[in-house]
Nucleic acid binder design. Sequence first.
DNA 1: TCAGAAACAGTCAGGTCGGACGGTAGAAGT
DNA 2: ACTTCTACCGTCCGACCTGACTGTTTCTGA
Lengths: 202, 202
Amino acid sequence: MSVQPARTTRTQGERSAAMQRRLLDATVAALCEKGYGGTTTMEVQQRAGVSRGALLHHFASRTDLMVAAVEHLTRERIAEVLSLVKSQAPRKGRLEWAVNVLWGTFQGPLFTASLELWLAARNDHELLTALLPQERIVGQTIRGMAADLFGEEVSGKPGFSEALEMVLDAQRGAAARSVLRSTDTDDRMIASWVHLMRALTT
Amino acid sequence: MSVQPARTTRTQGERSAAMQRRLLDATVAALCEKGYGGTTTMEVQQRAGVSRGALLHHFASRTDLMVAAVEHLTRERIAEVLSLVKSQAPRKGRLEWAVNVLWGTFQGPLFTASLELWLAARNDHELLTALLPQERIVGQTIRGMAADLFGEEVSGKPGFSEALEMVLDAQRGAAARSVLRSTDTDDRMIASWVHLMRALTT
DNA sequence: TCAGAAACAGTCAGGTCGGACGGTAGAAGT
DNA sequence: ACTTCTACCGTCCGACCTGACTGTTTCTGA
C-alpha cells in the first residue's frame, strides 16, 4: 500500500526534474548576484547544495548549463507575464495598467539574468544560437498578447505597433540603466510612457 | 643638432602616456570583441604588443586597468559627441540630425565597451565607484549640449526634457538589443524617435 | 529478485589567469 | 659622471575553474 508516494520513492524522472530545477534556479540566482563570470559551476552546485557529479551528470558542460538556463528563463518569464496579465482585471486605467505590466517584465531578476546571458552570448556562439530563438519566443509572446493587454480600443489604432516597440525599447533601456543605480522614481517614467502611447496612437 | 626629436629621445612622461594609451585602446578593443570576461590581462598585453611587466607597472591590477579604461572611455565618448556636433552644420532637418547624432553615440564600439563595464560593475564595487561618476559626466555633457543640438526652438518647449530622456532610454534599449543581431533598419526607429520628439514637445 | 541503467557523490589532473618578484635599460636630478 | 628614479621586461607561483574519472546509491525492467 503506497500511503506516502513522495520522499520514500520517487520516479527517476521526478528526481531528474527536481534536480534540474534546483540547478537552474541556482544558476539564475547566481547570474543575478554574481554575473556571468561569477556563475561558475562550483558556485551553482554550492547554491543548489548538490555534488559536482550531480551537476555534471545533468549538464555535461558549463555552456550546457547556461543554454538550459536560457530556456528555463524563457519559460519563467512567459509564465510571469501570463500571471501578471491574468491576475489583475483592468477596469479603468487600462493603459497605465498595461504599461505597468510590461515594465514589470523588465524589473525582476529574470531580466537581469537574461541581460547577463545576452552579453555573454556575444562571445559564445553556442550560447548565441540557443539565445536568439528563445528571445524571439519571448518577444512574440509579449507582442501576441499586446491586444489583450491594451484592449482593442488602443491596439487597433494606427501607430500602436511603433509606439509599443518604442516603449519596449525605452523600458529595456531604463532597465539596463537601473541595473546599477536602482529605482529612481519609476512613476515619472511610467507616466512618460503612457503619455507616449497616448500621443502616438491617433 | 636635434633633427629628429622623437624616437631617439623621449620624455618619461611621453613614454608613459603613449604606453598607457596603447594599453587602454587595447583594453577597449578587447572589451568589444571578447567581452569583460575575455578581457584578460594577457589578452590586453598581447593586443598592445607589450610585456607583462609593462602592463603591471602602469596598472597594478586588472581592476585598475578597467577603472582607467572607464575614464578613458568617458573622454573618448565625449570627444566623439563633440566632434559630431561640430562637424556638421544643420540647416534644414535639425531634429532628424540631432536624433541621429544622439543615436551615433550608442552605435560605435565605445558604447559596447561601456555596456560590458556597466554589467561587470554590478559585481565589482571598486569598478562601480569609478563608473558612476563617469557616467554622470557623460550624461550631463549630453544633456548640457541638448540645446545646441536641437536648437532653442525645440529645446525650449515644455515637454522637451521628458521627451529627450525617453529617446535616450529608447536608444539605449535599441542599442542593447542590437548588440547581438546587428542593425535592423535604423531608419524606421529614427523616424519613430523624431515622431516622438515632435509629438511630445508641444 | 536480480541485473543493468540512471542518478548522484567526491577526487584528480590539466589549464588559465592574476599578480608578485628580481632584473635591465633609459631618463632625470646633482 | 654618478646616483636615483622611472619605465619596462620575463619568469614564476598560488588560486581557481573545468571537465574527466571512479565509486556509490537509487530506480526500473525482466
